[in-house]
């Protein structure tokens, strides 16, 4: 059996929920492929994996994959994931969110999940726009870009999801693109196996809602831009400021060993069992 057929049969609800809702050329399909390839490489059992997603185009991924899946409320995916992981630390919890989902409505949950360093994997699909609702500007829409709620140009400044995660204290932070699909496979595999809170920012494109309005061409043209703008982390040191202007880094940005929440909580349990009860 061809590798792709094996993966589809093993990991997708191919006989239940397809065709999917995404536009032809959407980056979500490439991410879905990377996700199941990355998971397959980890060798984890399907029963031990929980996919939690938020609301938006990327949120639909949870419907299509054959794991324990949870499609939450908008922006709250990480909070549900926190409860699942604490209740059953044996489970591998992978959270998939969009840029608006994770950093606008869910921004508070995002930084606090990173700060706690729970052993979760957060994948943030960043297409710079609210796609499902029709192209409104998000926290990652560039300054000056056009959106259906910024017809005169966006006057807000975008922030970097990966850098936000680094500053908030995540154990591992990586950035990839849907163009660099095989790198993305690697990043997702490493993020799942990382012991601690791992974030993978996935630079994607929304040619339907963002590219079209900003005259950036079709899906292929937008992916070409990803190829041209991305700089592998290994090459950054050898490049000048000017060369890096307007470009972004891909690869593992940070990988550090920090105390993991569930391990710390084990100590709390031991202390609590040893302490004389104040109530009995």
């Amino acid at each position: 059996m061809a590798e792709i057929t094996r993966l589809i049969h093993k990991y997708l609800r191919h006989d239940k929920k397809f065709p999917h809702v995404w536009c032809p050329g959407c980056g979500n399909g490439i991410l879905l492929g990377s996700l199941i390839r990355g998971i397959d490489r980890t060798g984890l059992e399907k029963d031990d994996i929980v996919i939690v997603s938020g609301i938006g185009c990327s949120g639909r991924i949870s419907v299509y994959v054959d794991f324990n899946t949870l499609h939450t409320t908008h922006g709250r995916a990480l909070t549900f994931a926190t409860g699942i992981k604490l209740a059953n630390p044996r489970l591998h919890v992978i959270v998939i969110m969009g840029d608006g989902d994770a950093t606008a409505i869910g921004g508070n949950h995002f930084i606090h999940a990173a700060r706690r360093n729970l052993n979760l994997t957060a994948i943030v699909v960043n297409n710079s726009i609210y796609g499902m609702t029709g192209g409104q500007y998000s926290p990652t829409t560039p300054y000056g870009a056009l959106a259906t709620t910024a017809l005169y140009g966006n006057i807000e400044h975008a922030f970097s999801i990966a850098e936000l995660a680094v500053m908030a204290g995540a154990g591992m932070v990586a950035r990839g693109t849907v163009y660099h699909a095989s790198l993305l496979d690697d990043l997702i595999e490493k993020a799942i196996m990382k012991r601690g809170f791992s974030v993978v920012e996935v630079i994607s494109h929304c040619h339907t809602q963002y590219g079209r309005r900003n005259l950036m061409g079709d899906a292929v043209e937008m992916m070409r831009r990803q190829k041209e703008s991305a700089v592998k982390i290994e090459k950054v040191a050898s490049m000048s400021e000017e060369e890096l202007q307007g470009r972004f880094t891909i690869g593992i940005l940070v990988d550090r060993d920090l105390p993991i929440y569930t391990h710390e909580y084990r100590k709390i349990r031991e202390a609590a069992r040893a302490a004389p009860s104040r109530i009995r």
Binding site: T73, R76, T79, F80, G83, A87, N108, H109
Partner: peptide
């Protein structure tokens, strides 16, 4: 766990219940 707000609190509670607790 003390969460970052009440939205997160109920989210975590629902997650824990789905995990069987």
């Amino acid at each position: 766990i003390q969460m970052e707000d009440e939205i997160a609190s109920l989210g975590a509670v629902i997650g824990a219940s789905l995990a069987g607790v």
